[in-house]
Design a protein around this nucleic acid. Structure first.
Lengths: 332, 332
DNA sequence: TTGAAAGCGATACCAT
DNA sequence: ATGGTATCGCTTTCAA
């Protein structure tokens, strides 16, 4: 068996002893305070280096109540949309000098719970995506500032950054109709039992355009999910000439499936996604999308967190909204 | 002006007083220890809830020396390769029960320094990408376990996960040659002054195939960088029929530029990238690449960190290697 | 310039 | 079942 490390932690005390000074003097030397003799300081620094001393972040945090850490909870970092949200949040948090602890819940409710469990004792605030009931989250976070992102409409207890794509989706459908499309389908997400809010916007827009409910298929939130969903949709409704999707990743799947099925986009099938991820500009044809300002979304979430943290006039719900607007590219 | 929060922190002491018990009893109630009367426990819990009490993570960390946090330093989270590395590291870290604090250095040496500065007092180990000189990193991390990823060859002081793509690149070039290509170019990265290690592999492979040095252009690590680099390359050497690129993101830029220039891939121009990011399967045509097992890369980095952390037989350099192998798809 | 002592907020150990 | 006391490692305050 390997010879275990039975080495006790090197503390400030050890350094003090080695340098022949008191602990306070060590503290002074290490923290670049004035009021210390240059040679003493050097001696302390040498001793610290020699012993491999590192201050305990806990002990230090205990006395100097500064450093703030926030937990960022993301369902799936590999989903480009969430990647962008994370990057945006990271950037905004850095401006505040915060440390961001990132958790990927792997799109699983259980992981979410486990994450929440360990997370809460490690951070000063929580930002991110949660699918569990509010009561559950509340119980686990007990008093921690929490900012949810894109949490449907059931957000009573927590601040939530809402996404408002109603007008954007309306514009998307209008555009399709003006382009001559009549049989328009939607690829909704499949995560929950009920249709998504985005589906509701879609349905409203269809109605507003004098069209029926539209054909809907459910899709997993992945490229593959989008592919098979489009296949199902077209199998059931071969006459569909345009699709709106829950998000861009699904749309990109639809693009691929269309190609495979020999439908040229946008000639034989128009596709409009939702989110406006960068990835949409890399595929061929470039993806039209009801696009969010994702950086602003992240900044908003962080801003609200900051206000909650300082108990300083939190933004109210109608300021916590990120609008999504139609951004036309090549796919529709 | 907003009425500032002058509220002192609620401590275990306050809860104890409110519940009419001692602090220890509060601790018991909150940590689900046995040896406590049910009604007492309930009373304590109620008091805690009422006061909005949250244990100090610092105080707790000080006495229970468990929770481990590692800092993950990434140059640019929006670069799909780094996204994948981050996701892989996150996953591996979760298995250890670690918390991962993520820092995006925005590809800037200065940010890197700033990050290192604040980071070191917040984590128990550091993993990631660094471009600064080792001596500088060492000075800033002083004794913290550090695991570098893909740090060229100048890695004396730290553990580093090396990427070995020599054979993979050789295979790539051989494949091109066998497909009839003779004039092969490379789009190297432009971050540093010297050519990259990957360029050296390229040059060696070219030599081994009896071809000259090949035409090289520098590219920024972005799709746009790849686009303009390919344009330059073809402007200077219109006779080039195949390119190998520093990484996939640049290759994808090359793909786009080729399309714009009316060169069909792979017929008029073969393209092979490096990294093997998922994104490569989403573009058209799908990207051939000298591909890494990125999850393994992340797992390896975390594994070594764990060993360093426990001072438990760290892996030696030749075990810290991620091989990259040719993965042929449609672009070559 | 330096040191002694008093916290910071929790948990562990040992009494009771 | 509950409370007293020591302790974790550091910084701050105040004397010397």
């Amino acid at each position: 068996m390997p010879s275990g490390s039975e080495s006790r932690r090197v503390t400030i005390h050890d350094v003090a002893r080695a340098a022949g000074v008191s602990r306070q003097t060590v503290s002074r030397a290490l923290n670049d305070k004035g009021e210390i003799d240059h040679s003493t300081k050097q001696r302390v620094l040498d001793a610290a280096l020699a012993l491999g001393y590192r201050p305990s972040r806990f002990a230090r945090g205990l006395v100097r109540q500064d450093t703030i850490s926030v937990g960022l909870v993301i369902p799936d970092l590999l989903n480009p949309f969430f990647t962008e949200v994370a990057a945006a949040a990271l950037e905004a948090a850095r401006a505040h000098g915060w440390h961001v602890v990132v958790y990927d819940t792997a799109d699983s409710g259980e992981e979410e719970l486990g994450t929440l469990q360990v997370l809460t004792s490690q951070v000063d605030a929580v930002v991110g995506y949660f699918s569990r009931p509010e009561a559950e989250i509340e119980q686990l976070t007990r008093g921690l500032p929490v900012v949810l992102i894109d949490r449907g409409d059931d957000t009573e207890r927590f601040s939530s950054i809402r996404i408002d794509g109603r007008d954007g989706v309306r514009a998307a459908i209008s555009h399709l109709v003006e382009s001559g499309h009549r049989r328009i389908g939607m690829l909704d997400h499949a995560a929950r039992a009920e249709p998504s809010v985005r589906h509701a916007w879609f349905a409203d827009a269809m109605t507003a355009c004098g069209l029926g409910g539209g054909r809907v298929c459910r899709a997993e939130q992945s490229v593959e999910g989008g592919e098979s969903a489009l296949e199902s949709l077209l199998a059931q409704h071969p006459d569909v000439t345009a699709v709106f999707t829950f998000n861009d990743i699904i749309a990109i799947g639809a693009l691929r499936a269309a190609r495979r099925l020999g439908r040229e986009v946008p000639r034989d099938l128009a596709v409009i996604g939702f989110d406006g991820v960068r990835l949409g500009t890399l595929v061929e044809p470039q993806l039209s999308s009801v696009a969010l300002d994702i950086r602003k979304l992240g900044a908003l979430a962080v801003e609200q967190t900051a206000r909650l943290l300082t108990r300083n006039s939190p933004l109210d719900p109608d300021q916590l909204v990120a609008r999504a607007d139609l951004r036309l590219r090549a796919s529709a």
